[in-house]
Computed example of a mutant assay.
Amino acid sequence: MSELTPGLKAPRSMGERIRRILIERGVLDRRKRIRSDGSHIYIPVLESIDPDALRGIADVEIVRMEFEEDRRRITVQEILGRKASFETIGDIAVVEDDEPERVADAIMAVHRGIRTVLTPISDVEGEFRLRRYRYVAGEMKTITVHREHGIRYKIDLERAYFSPRLSTERLRVAEQVRPGDLVVDMFAGVGPFSLLIAKRGARVIAIDKNPYAVKLLRENARMNRLDVEIREGDAAALTEDLAGQADHVVMNLPHSASIFLKEAIRTAKSGGVVHYYTFAPEDDLYRDVRIIEDKARELGCEAAHLYRGIVRSYAPRIYNVVIDFVVKKKTGSVQ
């Protein structure tokens, strides 16, 4: 027997007007087909419909009945009648919207694989770059397994930083690495740069100060059967034995990467590439080029810039940018 789901029974003459009202109020269940008989129309609505959503609609009755699935592929935007800001991490959706409950209903109606919807209640904050979340819908959890470029990552959103919006950027960097290269990931987190690069046959040293992120990084390396050297602690201290050795250095700490430039330049070999991430205003996106050049000169080196690009929008008129530069060391410069 098919599942009985809620719908509105109304006179056929009122059907189109009521359908439009339900769309505006975000309670029409677009997964189901509207039914009708000789005198009435039956319009499917979301299971979580609030009676207040029917305020001002006369001559309707809530019923439970069988509705056929609508096989057309619909979107969250179609259900809401507008765009909504959200991203998916594994089976968790993170919503940044003024109406998170309404958006959650639409997401769970469209994306059958989503089991939890959260909304952030803080910016990225603290030493470990974490956010706090409020539960909105589905299962009450913050742990998930996210798949990206053929690798699985166990993630706890409240205890270790992760952003799926860097997926393309991670692949761009990994594609520059050759088998046998030494890559130092100074702020590795749960390993999205490190493991993808290790999969390409590089030797990877992954460093992070957050003990829980390191725990997940170890689990993720085992889960994907990838060999990564993992170091827990401060990147400045844990790169002291790597001077002049790295073919690539990844600096994905955009809030404060400039503080560690000396260590990154020191770790890179002559001809090694540093991938440097920061936040910058729209009117001066690559202002940190000056900081990089000054630090290289201070260390008796040269920073030759290879690539500059916008990784993602971060806030109004603020962008997450990347600057790739080659370290050219002179005789007698810092090693």
Rank of each mutant, 00 (worst) to 15 (best):
D208Q: 05
R33W: 05
D324N: 14
I114E: 01
Q176S: 10
K330W: 09
V145S: 05
D283N: 15
I207M: 03
K32S: 07
A174Y: 07
D70A: 15
R308D: 00
L195H: 02
R19M: 14
N252V: 04
V63M: 11
T88F: 10
S122Q: 10
A268E: 07
R308G: 11
S2H: 12
G26M: 09
E139S: 08
L261P: 00
F162L: 01
R55C: 05
A264L: 06
L217S: 03
R290D: 11
D294V: 08
H146W: 11
I34C: 02
K262S: 07
A235E: 00
I74R: 15
P281I: 07
R35G: 04
R152A: 13
R147N: 07
L242F: 14
E47Q: 12
V177K: 03
P11D: 14
I114K: 04
A235G: 14
E61I: 08
L226F: 08
A257S: 15
R308W: 07
S2I: 12
P11T: 09
I49P: 02
E68Q: 14
L216P: 00
T331L: 05
R64E: 06
R165L: 13
V95P: 01
T144L: 05
I155K: 08
I292V: 15
I291A: 11
T144P: 05
T142F: 05
S313G: 14
D59G: 13
S85E: 13
R82E: 03
I43E: 04
K215T: 12
A10Y: 01
I43H: 12
I323K: 03
V274S: 06
Y42A: 03
V173M: 09
Y133K: 04
D98F: 13
T75N: 11
G332Y: 07
E169S: 03
A137H: 02
I89S: 00
S48E: 15
S13K: 14
M140S: 14
Y286P: 07
R35Q: 14
M140D: 14
Y307I: 06
D181F: 06
A206K: 02
I230Y: 13
E240N: 11
F162P: 00
S2G: 14
E298S: 15
R308P: 02
V249P: 00
L118I: 06
E16L: 12
R147C: 07
R30E: 14
R159N: 04
M14C: 10
V250F: 13
I62V: 15
F279V: 05
N320W: 05
P44N: 10
R33P: 06
M140E: 13
A106K: 13
A221M: 07
R33S: 04
V190S: 01
A198L: 00
R102D: 03
T142Y: 08
R317E: 08
K9R: 15
A93K: 06
D91Y: 08
P100Y: 02
A280G: 15
I205K: 07
I207F: 07
I292R: 02
K209L: 11
T168V: 14
